[in-house]
């Protein structure tokens, strides 16, 4: 219990140190562009590939499980859309990104810590937390919504592809009708808002675990694993809270 409280305090203090106005804006923007590219743009392909395949699989599985003549065929498109918009493209995609991006952040900062690069920054009078962590948090919060939008789009494209490939059950026309049926645009905003909060969770928790690494390569690996586990749990917890706050 004491250890957990200590960690919460340590995390809060680190965030206070990180989230301040940068001393040099040109250096901040340079770092920000680098982080957006490295953490965001480099994740685009994995997001697109996963979303297409999962969108296809969701459509096929719903089609296979809805065989009742009482349920209209457009339900497949409708359900696929709801799953992708409400949960898959934000929460599940961010869980996947917590693995990819979170481990990247924790291992990068952790390696900088054990090789004294963070000490070198501090010696120069630079706020190392602000210089290293703030651009990562900002970059991810700015770009994860873009990834989520790509995921929604490609996930639904995957579902449409499944409707063309299906031998029986659904048709492209019924699927497209289902996609448009009772559409609530707030669900897109809901997903984007969730993803921004997840982006903060992923980047800040991973940065925390990396920043306080002590030891060598083994500890950096452990910190990376812990960062992924902790941010995944926090994403799931935040999912419950946000769903309750925004949809009920």
């Amino acid at each position: 219990m004491y250890k957990a409280l200590h960690r919460v305090g340590e995390y809060t203090l680190l965030m206070k140190k990180s989230i301040t106005l940068p001393d040099r804006w040109n250096m901040f923007f340079k770092q920000l562009i680098r982080e957006i590219y490295k953490l965001g743009v480099d994740s685009l392909w994995i997001v697109i590939i996963i979303s297409i395949f999962i969108g296809t699989v969701i459509a096929i599985q719903i089609s296979l499980n809805i065989s009742s003549p009482l349920i209209p065929k457009f339900t497949i498109g409708y359900t696929t859309r709801e799953i992708i918009l409400l949960e898959f493209s934000s929460s599940i995609m961010c869980l996947i990104l917590a693995g990819k991006v979170g481990s990247n952040i924790a291992s990068e900062i952790g390696t900088m810590r054990v090789t004294e690069q963070i000490d070198a920054i501090e010696i120069m009078g630079v706020n190392s937390a602000n210089y290293l962590i703030f651009p990562k948090i900002t970059g991810l919060m700015l770009f994860i919504p873009v990834l989520v939008i790509f995921s929604m789009f490609t996930g639904i494209l995957g579902g449409i592809a499944a409707s063309y490939l299906a031998k029986d059950g659904m048709t492209p026309a019924s699927f497209e009708y289902g996609l448009q049926f009772y559409f609530n645009s707030f669900y897109i905003w809901y997903s984007i808002i969730k993803s921004i909060i997840y982006a903060f969770i992923i980047s800040s928790i991973a940065a925390y675990f990396g920043y306080y690494v002590k030891g060598g390569a083994l500890e950096v690996g452990k910190a990376s694993t812990n960062a992924v586990v902790m941010s995944s749990v926090m994403i799931l917890l935040a999912d419950v809270i946000l769903t309750h706050l925004m949809l009920t």
Binding site: M112, T115, E116, Q117, D119, A120, I123
Partner: peptide, 12 residues
């Protein structure tokens, strides 16, 4: 102040 670290601490 300038500092030379044991492992050089150059930014990778």
């Amino acid at each position: 102040m300038g500092m030379l670290f044991q492992g050089s601490a150059l930014f990778d």
